[in-house]
Write a protein that binds this DNA or RNA. Structure first.
Lengths: 239, 239
DNA sequence: TAGTGGTCTAGACCACGTT
DNA sequence: ACGTGGTCTAGACCACTAT
């Protein structure tokens, strides 16, 4: 029970404010001495806090109490920029930049994408991938799929979609999105996501699947968005 | 690098379908033999998968690949039962039951609650706590705060709020909620939440802060909802 | 260079489940 | 009884960070 009790003590100390965000916790050696345990036991106690997302470790330097200052991603039925997501984040999350990673005019659609967009087998999709960064750190990764029958040959299939973003271009093409569905799940990140978003151990991701529908009810865009949960709060206003 | 490579191999095997949800992974002893490593190393490899939420361990029985069959919590601007949350979950999540844990007619309000509800210092709140279970397993814990000036003396301060739930009673009192704001965050659970919701290691929680506003814009209810992310998907329909 | 965390070994005892 | 995971020890070597 010693590793657990070390974690318990430190956790209580963090909650009570003995250690505040940014503070360094006692070193492994210090814990070994105070609790009279082996190193692996002290480590295990500390690792529990890390798994809870309470601390971050810095190799060679120490274990530190973690902070949470979320970017608010506001998803009201709202006017759009590159995508609704981008526009709204820019309002609240100062210092956010967007990097378009790849745009493919015509690609094969994974089965789930095809189903969600109501496409037939063999139908192509336009794929846009982008990354959002907060002060150099990647915090959000998004992949958008649009039917190539709509998007190919328009600025949507270009790197620069122009003023108003994909939604404005969809409107230009007579497919203005008017209704959205967002499905939100939280889970631990995959290895790829840990690397891509440089996610701290003990931090989950929010995975948002967003479907945009035109006035006639046809889906015109499917987006998979993965957000570092250590960086974001999702806000929904519902009438 | 061995613990990491064991995790890598097993992860790949799970992704490729060699092990499907419910399957048992090789035991620690088996991994020690195949990889020629010490037990702690094999354990560490397995613990990585657990931390990623890919597996669950059953003491004395083995390590198993995990499944995800989410309950869809649909939060459209919707008619309300006990609370909107409850009503909507019942539609989709078969076998969900609600247990009202505690109802306090008049309690002191934590500062954050007071601010969110626009109350003055010393103002009291009515507090309702409830737990949702899926087949005996608790999956959601919710605490609702309402201004006691509105709720005390009404069925809202009783265990049984009656047909239509708190929202119907608020409407009866002339404070029908018409607008909602939901702030969604994902994080690792606290120890209390792990115990209360019996959350598997490697599973985050979704923490939803929901504010209900009456037609005149005054907040009439603040709810803190914690959901086991291994059990839920949040759905938002936006116009 | 000294102190920090990261990884691994080899062995022990305990607690839980299945047979 | 046996095999499973859970915990702990005591010691080693490595990699990173500060001074």
């Amino acid at each position: 029970m010693t590793a657990a009790s070390i974690a318990k003590d430190l956790r209580a100390a963090i909650r009570s404010g003995t250690y505040t965000p940014g503070d360094r916790l006692p070193s492994e050696a210090a814990l070994m001495a105070t609790y009279g345990v082996a190193r692996m036991t002290a480590r295990h106690g500390l690792s529990m806090l890390k798994d809870e997302g309470l601390t971050v470790t810095r190799h060679g330097s120490g274990v530190f109490v973690r902070a949470f200052e979320p970017i608010i991603r506001d998803t009201t039925g709202a006017p759009a920029d590159d995508s609704t997501v981008t526009a709204e984040i820019d309002e609240t999350g100062a210092g956010l930049t967007v990097r378009t990673l790849a745009v493919t005019a015509e690609a094969d659609a994974p089965e789930k994408v095809r189903t969600a967009l109501g496409l037939a087998e063999g139908d192509k999709v336009t794929v846009r991938e982008r990354l959002h960064l907060r002060e150099r750190k990647p915090v959000l990764f998004a992949t958008s799929y649009l039917p190539a029958s709509i998007a190919a040959g328009t600025p949507i299939a270009e790197r620069d979609v122009g003023q108003g973003g994909t939604h404005a271009r969809l409107a230009d093409a007579g497919h203005a999105p008017v209704r959205f569905r967002e499905d939100v799940v939280a889970r631990m990140p995959s290895i790829e996501e840990i690397e891509e978003l440089r996610i701290e151990p003990g931090t989950p991701v929010l995975a948002v699947t967003r479907t945009a529908f035109a006035a006639d009810g046809t889906p015109v865009e499917l987006s998979h968005v993965v957000l570092d949960a250590g960086e974001f709060m999702l806000r929904y206003d519902i009438d």
